[in-house]
Protein backbone atom coordinates (compact mmCIF):
# COMPACT_ATOMS: atom_id res chain seq x y z
CA UNK A 1 0.00 0.00 0.00
CA UNK A 2 1.56 3.29 -1.03
CA UNK A 3 1.14 6.61 0.72
CA UNK A 4 -1.93 7.75 -1.20
CA UNK A 5 -3.79 4.49 -0.80
CA UNK A 6 -3.07 4.53 2.91
CA UNK A 7 -4.39 8.07 3.15
CA UNK A 8 -7.55 7.19 1.21
CA UNK A 9 -8.20 4.16 3.42
CA UNK A 10 -7.85 6.34 6.53
CA UNK A 11 -10.29 8.87 5.13
CA UNK A 12 -12.78 6.11 4.32
CA UNK A 13 -12.54 4.79 7.88
CA UNK A 14 -13.06 8.29 9.31
CA UNK A 15 -16.02 8.77 7.01
CA UNK A 16 -17.70 5.60 8.22
CA UNK A 17 -16.90 6.32 11.87
CA UNK A 18 -18.52 9.74 11.62
CA UNK A 19 -21.60 8.29 9.98
CA UNK A 20 -21.93 5.74 12.79
CA UNK A 21 -21.65 8.47 15.45
CA UNK A 22 -24.33 10.54 13.69
CA UNK A 23 -26.69 7.56 13.48
CA UNK A 24 -26.09 6.73 17.15
CA UNK A 25 -27.02 10.29 18.06
CA UNK A 26 -30.25 10.01 16.12
CA UNK A 27 -31.11 6.61 17.61
CA UNK A 28 -30.45 7.83 21.15
CA UNK A 29 -32.78 10.82 20.68
CA UNK A 30 -35.47 8.62 19.17
CA UNK A 31 -35.08 6.02 21.91
CA UNK A 32 -35.56 8.54 24.72
CA UNK A 33 -38.56 10.02 22.96
CA UNK A 34 -40.18 6.66 22.37
CA UNK A 35 -39.53 5.60 25.96
CA UNK A 36 -41.25 8.75 27.17
CA UNK A 37 -44.19 8.28 24.83
CA UNK A 38 -44.52 4.62 25.79
CA UNK A 39 -44.51 5.40 29.51
CA UNK A 40 -47.07 8.17 29.20
CA UNK A 41 -49.35 6.13 26.95
CA UNK A 42 -49.10 3.09 29.23
CA UNK A 43 -50.16 5.10 32.28
CA UNK A 44 -52.61 7.49 30.75
CA UNK A 45 -54.34 5.94 27.76
CA UNK A 46 -56.90 4.17 29.94
CA UNK A 47 -57.94 7.56 31.38
CA UNK A 48 -58.78 9.13 28.03
CA UNK A 49 -62.56 9.10 27.73
CA UNK A 50 -65.46 11.54 27.51
CA UNK A 51 -65.77 11.80 31.29
CA UNK A 52 -62.09 12.76 31.61
CA UNK A 53 -62.31 15.38 28.85
CA UNK A 54 -65.52 16.99 30.10
CA UNK A 55 -65.19 16.94 33.92
CA UNK A 56 -63.69 19.47 36.26
CA UNK A 57 -60.93 18.41 38.59
CA UNK A 58 -61.94 16.64 41.79
CA UNK A 59 -60.59 15.27 45.04
CA UNK A 60 -61.57 11.85 43.76
CA UNK A 61 -59.14 10.86 41.05
CA UNK A 62 -61.59 8.73 39.08
CA UNK A 63 -64.10 11.62 38.86
CA UNK A 64 -61.48 14.25 37.96
CA UNK A 65 -61.20 15.70 34.45
CA UNK A 66 -59.34 18.34 32.48
CA UNK A 67 -62.07 20.54 31.02
CA UNK A 68 -60.96 23.63 32.97
CA UNK A 69 -57.34 23.28 31.88
CA UNK A 70 -58.21 22.42 28.30
CA UNK A 71 -60.55 25.36 27.82
CA UNK A 72 -58.18 27.65 29.76
CA UNK A 73 -55.28 26.65 27.50
CA UNK A 74 -57.40 27.16 24.41
CA UNK A 75 -58.55 30.64 25.49
CA UNK A 76 -55.07 31.63 26.54
CA UNK A 77 -53.52 30.49 23.25
CA UNK A 78 -56.08 32.36 21.17
CA UNK A 79 -55.74 35.53 23.23
CA UNK A 80 -51.94 35.30 23.31
CA UNK A 81 -51.80 34.89 19.54
CA UNK A 82 -54.22 37.76 19.01
CA UNK A 83 -51.94 40.04 21.04
CA UNK A 84 -48.47 38.81 20.08
CA UNK A 85 -48.87 38.10 16.35
CA UNK A 86 -49.89 41.58 15.09
CA UNK A 87 -47.41 43.36 17.35
CA UNK A 88 -44.62 40.91 16.54
CA UNK A 89 -45.14 41.12 12.76
CA UNK A 90 -45.48 44.89 12.95
CA UNK A 91 -42.22 45.21 14.87
CA UNK A 92 -40.42 42.92 12.43
CA UNK A 93 -41.71 44.81 9.39
CA UNK A 94 -40.60 48.08 10.92
CA UNK A 95 -37.14 46.77 11.75
CA UNK A 96 -36.60 45.20 8.32
CA UNK A 97 -38.29 47.63 5.95
CA UNK A 98 -38.33 51.03 7.64
CA UNK A 99 -35.64 51.50 10.28
CA UNK A 100 -32.19 52.60 9.24
CA UNK A 101 -29.43 50.04 9.74
CA UNK A 102 -27.53 52.06 12.32
CA UNK A 103 -26.21 51.58 15.85
CA UNK A 104 -29.65 51.88 17.45
CA UNK A 105 -30.99 49.23 15.08
CA UNK A 106 -28.17 46.86 15.98
CA UNK A 107 -28.75 47.41 19.71
CA UNK A 108 -32.45 46.63 19.28
CA UNK A 109 -31.60 43.53 17.25
CA UNK A 110 -29.22 42.16 19.91
CA UNK A 111 -31.76 42.88 22.64
CA UNK A 112 -34.54 41.02 20.89
CA UNK A 113 -32.27 38.01 20.39
CA UNK A 114 -31.44 38.14 24.11
CA UNK A 115 -35.09 38.48 25.11
CA UNK A 116 -35.85 35.27 23.21
CA UNK A 117 -33.42 33.50 25.52
CA UNK A 118 -34.59 34.94 28.85
CA UNK A 119 -35.89 32.21 31.22
CA UNK A 120 -39.67 32.11 31.24
CA UNK A 121 -39.90 32.58 35.01
CA UNK A 122 -38.46 36.06 34.53
CA UNK A 123 -41.37 36.89 32.22
CA UNK A 124 -43.63 35.55 34.95
CA UNK A 125 -42.14 37.97 37.44
CA UNK A 126 -42.48 40.80 34.94
CA UNK A 127 -46.13 39.86 34.35
CA UNK A 128 -46.75 39.72 38.08
CA UNK A 129 -45.30 43.18 38.64
CA UNK A 130 -46.64 44.84 35.51
CA UNK A 131 -50.01 43.30 34.65
CA UNK A 132 -51.22 41.70 37.89
CA UNK A 133 -50.14 44.42 40.32
CA UNK A 134 -49.56 47.67 38.44
CA UNK A 135 -52.39 47.34 35.90
CA UNK A 136 -54.50 45.65 38.61
CA UNK A 137 -55.55 42.91 36.21
CA UNK A 138 -55.32 40.39 39.02
CA UNK A 139 -54.68 36.73 38.27
CA UNK A 140 -56.96 36.96 35.23
CA UNK A 141 -56.98 35.31 31.82
CA UNK A 142 -55.98 38.68 30.33
CA UNK A 143 -52.97 39.06 32.64
CA UNK A 144 -51.85 35.51 31.82
CA UNK A 145 -52.23 36.01 28.07
CA UNK A 146 -50.38 39.34 28.14
CA UNK A 147 -47.51 37.70 30.01
CA UNK A 148 -47.40 34.85 27.50
CA UNK A 149 -47.48 37.38 24.65
CA UNK A 150 -44.35 39.04 26.01
CA UNK A 151 -42.72 35.64 26.21
CA UNK A 152 -43.35 34.62 22.60
CA UNK A 153 -43.09 38.03 20.94
CA UNK A 154 -39.29 37.92 20.48
CA UNK A 155 -39.62 34.51 18.81
CA UNK A 156 -42.24 35.86 16.40
CA UNK A 157 -40.19 38.98 15.67
CA UNK A 158 -37.05 36.98 14.91
CA UNK A 159 -38.87 34.45 12.71
CA UNK A 160 -40.69 37.21 10.80
CA UNK A 161 -37.49 39.19 10.26
CA UNK A 162 -35.79 36.10 8.86
CA UNK A 163 -38.75 35.49 6.56
CA UNK A 164 -38.82 39.08 5.33
CA UNK A 165 -35.08 39.12 4.80
CA UNK A 166 -35.32 36.11 2.52
CA UNK A 167 -37.58 37.95 0.05
CA UNK A 168 -35.30 38.75 -2.92
CA UNK A 169 -34.46 42.43 -3.19
CA UNK A 170 -35.38 42.29 -6.89
CA UNK A 171 -39.03 41.98 -5.87
CA UNK A 172 -38.84 45.21 -3.84
CA UNK A 173 -37.10 47.02 -6.70
CA UNK A 174 -39.59 45.75 -9.26
CA UNK A 175 -42.49 46.90 -7.13
CA UNK A 176 -41.05 50.35 -6.46
CA UNK A 177 -40.10 50.74 -10.12
CA UNK A 178 -43.74 50.78 -11.25
CA UNK A 179 -44.66 53.40 -8.68
CA UNK A 180 -45.71 51.38 -5.63
CA UNK A 181 -45.49 52.98 -2.23
CA UNK A 182 -43.67 51.22 0.56
CA UNK A 183 -46.96 50.13 2.11
CA UNK A 184 -48.15 48.64 -1.20
CA UNK A 185 -44.86 46.82 -1.65
CA UNK A 186 -45.04 45.34 1.84
CA UNK A 187 -48.72 44.46 1.56
CA UNK A 188 -48.74 43.00 -1.96
CA UNK A 189 -45.33 41.31 -2.05
CA UNK A 190 -43.22 41.15 1.09
CA UNK A 191 -45.88 39.75 3.43
CA UNK A 192 -47.51 37.29 0.98
CA UNK A 193 -44.13 35.90 -0.10
CA UNK A 194 -42.83 35.53 3.45
CA UNK A 195 -46.17 34.34 4.86
CA UNK A 196 -45.42 30.58 4.96
CA UNK A 197 -42.22 31.13 6.96
CA UNK A 198 -43.88 33.67 9.25
CA UNK A 199 -46.64 31.16 9.91
CA UNK A 200 -44.13 28.49 10.85
CA UNK A 201 -42.53 30.89 13.32
CA UNK A 202 -45.90 31.78 14.83
CA UNK A 203 -46.91 28.16 15.32
CA UNK A 204 -43.58 27.30 16.93
CA UNK A 205 -44.00 30.28 19.26
CA UNK A 206 -47.54 29.24 20.15
CA UNK A 207 -46.46 25.65 20.74
CA UNK A 208 -44.02 27.06 23.25
CA UNK A 209 -46.77 29.08 24.92
CA UNK A 210 -48.90 25.95 25.29
CA UNK A 211 -46.18 24.14 27.17
CA UNK A 212 -45.00 26.94 29.46
CA UNK A 213 -46.01 26.60 33.10
CA UNK A 214 -43.64 28.69 35.17
CA UNK A 215 -44.78 32.20 34.16
CA UNK A 216 -48.43 31.43 34.85
CA UNK A 217 -47.70 29.85 38.21
CA UNK A 218 -45.73 32.99 39.04
CA UNK A 219 -48.59 35.31 38.23
CA UNK A 220 -50.90 33.06 40.22
CA UNK A 221 -53.04 31.08 37.81
CA UNK A 222 -55.16 28.77 39.98
CA UNK A 223 -54.45 25.08 40.45
CA UNK A 224 -57.89 23.94 41.50
CA UNK A 225 -60.54 25.31 39.16
CA UNK A 226 -64.09 24.05 38.81
CA UNK A 227 -65.47 26.63 36.42
CA UNK A 228 -64.73 27.86 32.90
CA UNK A 229 -63.42 31.40 32.37
CA UNK A 230 -66.42 33.63 31.66
CA UNK A 231 -64.56 36.70 30.43
CA UNK A 232 -61.11 38.27 30.28
CA UNK A 233 -61.14 38.99 34.01
CA UNK A 234 -61.91 35.43 35.07
CA UNK A 235 -59.32 33.40 36.88
CA UNK A 236 -58.30 30.30 35.02
CA UNK A 237 -55.97 27.35 34.85
CA UNK A 238 -54.11 25.67 32.00
CA UNK A 239 -53.27 22.08 31.19
CA UNK A 240 -49.60 22.16 32.26
CA UNK A 241 -50.59 23.53 35.68
CA UNK A 242 -53.21 20.83 36.02
CA UNK A 243 -50.59 18.24 35.16
CA UNK A 244 -48.12 19.77 37.61
CA UNK A 245 -50.77 19.69 40.31
CA UNK A 246 -51.65 16.04 39.77
CA UNK A 247 -48.05 14.89 39.49
CA UNK A 248 -47.34 16.32 42.93
CA UNK A 249 -50.05 14.11 44.50
CA UNK A 250 -48.83 10.84 46.06
CA UNK A 251 -51.74 8.65 44.86
CA UNK A 252 -51.18 6.43 41.83
CA UNK A 253 -54.62 7.36 40.39
CA UNK A 254 -53.62 11.03 40.09
CA UNK A 255 -50.41 10.01 38.33
CA UNK A 256 -52.59 8.29 35.74
CA UNK A 257 -54.68 11.45 35.43
CA UNK A 258 -51.49 13.42 34.86
CA UNK A 259 -50.42 11.00 32.13
CA UNK A 260 -53.83 11.31 30.50
CA UNK A 261 -53.59 15.10 30.52
CA UNK A 262 -50.08 14.91 29.02
CA UNK A 263 -51.45 12.84 26.14
CA UNK A 264 -54.10 15.49 25.47
CA UNK A 265 -51.49 18.25 25.64
CA UNK A 266 -49.22 16.38 23.22
CA UNK A 267 -52.14 15.81 20.85
CA UNK A 268 -52.98 19.51 21.03
CA UNK A 269 -49.42 20.52 20.11
CA UNK A 270 -49.26 17.91 17.37
CA UNK A 271 -52.54 19.19 15.94
CA UNK A 272 -51.24 22.77 15.85
CA UNK A 273 -48.01 21.71 14.17
CA UNK A 274 -49.91 19.69 11.56
CA UNK A 275 -52.11 22.68 10.79
CA UNK A 276 -48.97 24.78 10.35
CA UNK A 277 -47.44 22.29 7.94
CA UNK A 278 -50.64 21.99 5.91
CA UNK A 279 -51.09 25.77 5.70
CA UNK A 280 -47.46 26.29 4.79
CA UNK A 281 -47.62 23.75 1.99
CA UNK A 282 -50.80 25.28 0.65
CA UNK A 283 -49.49 28.85 0.66
CA UNK A 284 -46.01 28.17 -0.64
CA UNK A 285 -47.38 26.83 -3.94
Amino acid sequence: MNHFELHAAKQRAKNIAFQVIAIMGLLFALFVLLLLLFNVLKDGLSRINIQFLTSYTSRHAEQAGIIAGLVGTLYMVILTAAIAVPIGIGAAVYLEEYSKKNLLGRIIEINIANLAGVPSIVYGLLGLGLFVRWFSLDRSLLAGSLTMSLLIMPVIIIATREAIRSVPNGIREASFAVGSTKLQTIWHHILPISFPSILTGIILAISRAIGETAPLITIGALTYVTFLPKDLNSSFTILPIQIYNWVSRPQQEFQENAAGAIIVLLAFTLLLNSIAIILRNRFSK
Binding site: P168, G170, I171, A174, S175, A177, I193
Partner: peptide
Protein backbone atom coordinates in the same frame (compact mmCIF):
# COMPACT_ATOMS: atom_id res chain seq x y z
CA UNK B 1 -41.12 59.67 -5.72
CA UNK B 2 -43.93 57.30 -6.81
CA UNK B 3 -44.97 59.76 -9.53
CA UNK B 4 -41.43 59.85 -10.87
CA UNK B 5 -41.28 56.07 -11.03
CA UNK B 6 -44.57 55.90 -12.90
CA UNK B 7 -43.09 58.11 -15.61
CA UNK B 8 -39.70 56.41 -15.67
CA UNK B 9 -39.94 52.64 -16.06
CA UNK B 10 -37.09 50.28 -15.33
CA UNK B 11 -35.94 46.84 -16.46
CA UNK B 12 -33.40 45.13 -14.23
CA UNK B 13 -30.36 42.98 -14.85
CA UNK B 14 -31.92 39.80 -13.50
CA UNK B 15 -35.49 39.13 -14.62
CA UNK B 16 -37.56 39.79 -11.49
CA UNK B 17 -41.20 38.89 -12.15
CA UNK B 18 -43.52 38.75 -9.16
CA UNK B 19 -44.57 35.25 -8.08
Amino acid sequence: VEDVRKRVGMVFQKPNPFP
